[in-house]
Design a protein around this nucleic acid. Sequence first.
DNA 1: TATGAATGAGACTTCATTCAT
DNA 2: CATGAATGAAGTCTCATTCAT
Lengths: 194, 194, 194, 194
Amino acid sequence: MLKREKPKYKKIVDAAVAVIAQNGYHQAQVSKIAKEAGVADGTIYLYFKNKEDILVSVFREKMAVFADYVKEILETDCSASDKLFKMIQNHFSVLHEDRNLAIVTQLELRQSSKELRFRINEVLKEYLALLDSLLKEGVQSGEFSQDLDTRLARQMVFGTIDETCTSWVMNDQKYGLLELAPKVHKLLLSGMKG
Amino acid sequence: MLKREKPKYKKIVDAAVAVIAQNGYHQAQVSKIAKEAGVADGTIYLYFKNKEDILVSVFREKMAVFADYVKEILETDCSASDKLFKMIQNHFSVLHEDRNLAIVTQLELRQSSKELRFRINEVLKEYLALLDSLLKEGVQSGEFSQDLDTRLARQMVFGTIDETCTSWVMNDQKYGLLELAPKVHKLLLSGMKG
Amino acid sequence: MLKREKPKYKKIVDAAVAVIAQNGYHQAQVSKIAKEAGVADGTIYLYFKNKEDILVSVFREKMAVFADYVKEILETDCSASDKLFKMIQNHFSVLHEDRNLAIVTQLELRQSSKELRFRINEVLKEYLALLDSLLKEGVQSGEFSQDLDTRLARQMVFGTIDETCTSWVMNDQKYGLLELAPKVHKLLLSGMKG
Amino acid sequence: MLKREKPKYKKIVDAAVAVIAQNGYHQAQVSKIAKEAGVADGTIYLYFKNKEDILVSVFREKMAVFADYVKEILETDCSASDKLFKMIQNHFSVLHEDRNLAIVTQLELRQSSKELRFRINEVLKEYLALLDSLLKEGVQSGEFSQDLDTRLARQMVFGTIDETCTSWVMNDQKYGLLELAPKVHKLLLSGMKG
DNA sequence: TATGAATGAGACTTCATTCAT
DNA sequence: CATGAATGAAGTCTCATTCAT
């Protein structure tokens, strides 16, 4: 059985999300995570190399949820525009459903060290690559402007989505994030049609 | 004389930027900043309440450079579109000119605690408010779509600018940030014309 | 069958010597010894009470090699001087032949706790007792000075042998230890003839 | 003022000797040493790089006491034999007077890591070099055997002295160490006269 | 006998802040 | 105003040992 499929591995990852969301990144001690997961401190180190490894794993495991769904979306027959909409909706939906995860990814993990954030970025790259291919698809099909700079466009799309989510979390998730999807989609789409 | 006009105050703020850029947020100890500024550790505390206060001040002082210029721009007679362009250009230009500042604002200061980032956000709000009024101006003048959600649009504009700058810093400032301004402007504009 | 004659017992003792010699005392974890011996961690505790027990056993088993030969020597008909020579030669020879053992006894085991070293000393006492009787024999036979303080003399003999071996190990066993035997013997003998 | 002349530096070194002698090497925590020295834990790190640095310093400072006196002895007009006697007497005397120091150098510091012991050996080398020159002086003056191997002889002298001291400490310093000096001297001398 | 996953105590070191000079 | 020596709280990780299988 793969390490990441073992029940304790998952328990610890989930415990880390809960502890970070509730206590903040700098108050998420290993001992707190172990307690939340119901294991001994030392057990953590049977599954993770060190604390940083836990945090990268949290990000990797959760980002997979985003990426897997985007992969599915890409394989469907819809237009690039529809795919973009579904992708935004999915992104908002995942964070909307898991408030703790939203706090962790939008606020807490960003306080991690430069090294950790570079490693997190590695994980993010897969997601951004999928977004890239979606955009290129739209350019080829003629839906988006022919002279669209896909790197810039990707930064616009991701930047907008990210800023919207962060803003929502910072406002204590007062309003419905999911409901913003159509507007954000429309906004971004106009940008790309150029 | 105002505290923030005293020469040592400025020396310490500049020293903080240099030290953080060169050593990273987590390696920017108060004693290092003091040494760089050429003062004793204790002297820091005659000008700043605590370490967090230094960091917020760094952000406040530097963000003022952005905001002051945007204020000037807003008072000119150009179209909203032109003003947006000048604003983007200014934002890119400031970071392009001061590489250390770019590293500090886009990478290092984001590792600060949630509390510090909330305070940094307070400072940012003034800048975002100016952006808001620019957008509203564009809607009123008919340049932008009438049903533009200015909050979302502001998140798009700021998110895109921010993501572009961060991406540039993360790629070691290899390419010219300033040259991206026209493309980014065009991209965002289309989004707002809807 | 005696515990110490069982094949796994010997395997574990030999594994301990190898692991300590290669990794150093402080890096010789029980799990490493178990792996080297080809048994599970828990199995160790079927043959040894605890880690200290392994280390004492290593010393006991290996020291027996020295002592057994010295016993043989003592029973022969040679002069005390010849017996001393054979003993030195034997001591050097055993360490010369087993480089790992030399590293373990001269360098690594000395880092053990005071308690362990007291227990190791117990084992050593048999060896020193044999040395004592050799010296007394020499005094009685008139080979050595009549007023020789055998305790001091024993400390000189053992101290010299030990220091010579340690020095040889610390110099990476560059030169031939065995070849020093005649010189050391002559040196010590003069001391004892007084 | 040199670091090692500052009063707190000395206080901490002396506190380390006391704590190690009373509690054993492995129970000599930094916090215990700090408490004994009457300073805060952190103060230790203003004077020493890390814990190992304290221990090496203990050895360096105390070994200087041995070495300094041996230097004086070497410069006198006595015979090599007399100098050797004075050196043995000095060695025994220092340890006799400072029981804690004897425990620390003969038992406790030997449990330190291989790395630390190599560093301690560096310090020891100066002492051994002095011993070497004493022996060579004796060979030149004709007091000692012309074909004396000074390296081996040095190992005999140091090995015997060391073994005698260790034996004395291990027997709880029951008898007078100092009184053994004449006998040890006579024993070693015979060895060197060949 | 044999296994190996789980346990949990324990210590070094950093660094923001203070305060006597 | 300025100094800088001193403070002391707080957290990650290792590894000998156990025990259910």
